[in-house]
């Protein structure tokens, strides 16, 4: 597998970031085609264990995006998520998995432009990682 075309798994919350991604589409804002999205109701649904699983299975990067603080459709999902992501991020970086592989963002439903910028940023960031695959990737 060549990191020329990294595959990036993205979890987007339905109400803000997924809507922001749709808006980038309706506005025809172009970005690299490396991101693959899994839609979830809320960033609070994203179990940080998904990150470990994805990096182990073959994702070159993981990008999780939810509503800005205060905007959560479910009032507080993103706040809980923030703590969880923090822990997992610290663990992952601590064991030596490149920080570039993991990105979190808040993108609102009206931030089509930010979504585009984030997609570009995330892709560039993952491409920066020199190793071909994440150390956690297990080839078979």
């Amino acid at each position: 597998m060549d990191t020329k075309d990294p595959k990036i798994l993205s979890f987007l919350c339905n109400w803000c970031s997924y809507a922001g991604a749709d808006l980038a589409g309706t506005s025809r804002l172009q970005y690299p085609p490396n991101v693959r999205v899994i839609r979830v109701p809320c960033s609070g649904r994203v179990n940080p264990q998904f990150i470990v699983k994805a990096l182990r299975d073959g994702a070159d990067g993981v990008w999780i995006s939810g509503c800005h603080p205060g905007d959560c459709h479910y009032n507080s999902g993103n706040y809980f998520a923030r703590r969880r992501f923090y822990i997992m991020k610290e663990l992952i970086e601590f064991v030596g998995i490149e920080p570039e592989r993991l990105t979190f963002s808040w993108v609102s439903a009206s931030e089509g432009k930010k979504f585009q910028e984030m997609a570009i940023y995330v892709t560039e960031r993952v491409k920066k990682v020199k190793d071909k695959k994440s150390p956690l990737y297990k080839e078979i």
Partner: peptide
């Protein structure tokens, strides 16, 4: 919303429609 599901260590609580197995299956498909 699934906040509970993501918090559960033994994966005892799951969210129908966005269950762990659905999400992970989709993830694996990649």
């Amino acid at each position: 919303c699934g906040a509970c599901t993501a918090s559960c260590r033994p994966a005892a609580i799951d969210l129908l429609g966005y269950s762990n197995s659905e999400v992970l299956s989709s993830e694996f498909a990649l």
